[in-house]
Computed example of a mutant assay.
Amino acid sequence: MGTESGADRVETITEYHAHVYYRPETKAEAAALREALGARFPVRLGRWHDALVGPHTQSMYQVAFAVEAFAQVMPWLMLHRGGLDVLVHPMTGDELADHTAHAAWLGQRLPLRLEALAPGR
């Protein structure tokens, strides 16, 4: 059979991350969404980042969840994110691809500082 090409290779997703973006005037809405996510789902809620971190060009917090929770968390986010923009991406071990080619946006697609992400990192 031979070796698999990159196109045939199945990536291993270890978990998902949702980045919930907010501005000062939407922080209360982001806090309510965060509280609801934590109460409804088995997620890990990351710290609030009012200052920009990593590739993110707007204030945000991260929500990490297991592969098995995707089918519950993603549809709920689609319906309950309000006016907030959310980036949802898998964790495959390739941060650049995960935040770009493998990413799904709910709301507006925000620019990312891709230089903060190394391929395969």
Rank of each mutant, 00 (worst) to 15 (best):
residue 95 E to D: 15
residue 12 T to R: 10
residue 92 T to Q: 00
residue 37 L to I: 10
residue 44 R to M: 11
residue 105 W to K: 01
residue 96 L to D: 01
residue 99 H to S: 07
residue 20 V to D: 04
residue 30 A to T: 10
residue 19 H to G: 01
residue 102 H to Y: 04
residue 37 L to A: 14
residue 50 D to A: 12
residue 37 L to N: 09
residue 10 V to N: 08
residue 69 A to P: 05
residue 84 L to R: 09
residue 36 A to L: 11
residue 61 Y to L: 06
residue 20 V to I: 15
residue 17 H to M: 13
residue 57 T to E: 08
residue 60 M to Y: 11
residue 14 T to V: 01
residue 27 K to H: 13
residue 8 D to A: 14
residue 79 L to R: 11
residue 86 V to P: 00
residue 56 H to S: 12
residue 16 Y to K: 07
residue 44 R to P: 00
residue 76 W to C: 13
residue 32 A to Y: 00
residue 113 R to C: 05
residue 36 A to H: 08
residue 69 A to L: 05
residue 117 L to N: 11
residue 60 M to V: 07
residue 111 P to Q: 06
residue 65 F to N: 11
residue 24 P to A: 06
residue 114 L to H: 03
residue 9 R to N: 00
residue 11 E to C: 01
residue 47 R to M: 00
residue 89 H to K: 10
residue 10 V to Q: 15
residue 30 A to Y: 11
residue 85 D to Q: 00
residue 68 E to W: 04
residue 55 P to H: 10
residue 33 L to I: 04
residue 109 R to S: 01
residue 35 E to H: 06
residue 115 E to K: 11
residue 78 M to A: 12
residue 10 V to I: 13
residue 118 A to I: 06
residue 21 Y to F: 15
residue 95 E to P: 03
residue 62 Q to G: 03
residue 114 L to A: 09
residue 72 Q to N: 09
residue 35 E to Q: 15
residue 118 A to W: 08
residue 2 G to P: 02
residue 69 A to R: 09
residue 104 A to D: 02
residue 72 Q to H: 02
residue 87 L to M: 10
residue 117 L to M: 08
residue 2 G to I: 07
residue 86 V to S: 06
residue 79 L to F: 01
residue 13 I to W: 07
residue 83 G to A: 09
residue 33 L to G: 03
residue 40 R to W: 06
residue 74 M to D: 13
residue 121 R to L: 00
residue 34 R to V: 08
residue 4 E to F: 12
residue 43 V to K: 11
residue 6 G to M: 02
residue 28 A to D: 07
residue 101 A to I: 06
residue 57 T to W: 02
residue 75 P to W: 13
residue 16 Y to N: 06
residue 111 P to D: 14
residue 55 P to W: 09
residue 107 G to V: 04
residue 52 L to I: 08
residue 82 G to L: 01
residue 103 A to P: 07
residue 93 G to T: 04
residue 80 H to K: 12
residue 60 M to I: 08
residue 19 H to P: 02
residue 18 A to K: 12
residue 96 L to S: 10
residue 32 A to C: 01
residue 112 L to P: 02
residue 113 R to I: 02
residue 25 E to S: 12
residue 48 W to Q: 01
residue 14 T to F: 15
residue 77 L to R: 10
residue 2 G to N: 05
residue 82 G to I: 09
residue 50 D to C: 07
residue 21 Y to K: 12
residue 106 L to A: 04
residue 119 P to V: 03
residue 44 R to H: 02
residue 104 A to M: 14
residue 66 A to D: 14
residue 11 E to M: 06
residue 1 M to A: 09
residue 35 E to M: 08
residue 73 V to M: 10
residue 69 A to G: 04
residue 76 W to H: 05
residue 117 L to S: 00
residue 78 M to L: 15
residue 41 F to G: 03
residue 112 L to A: 07
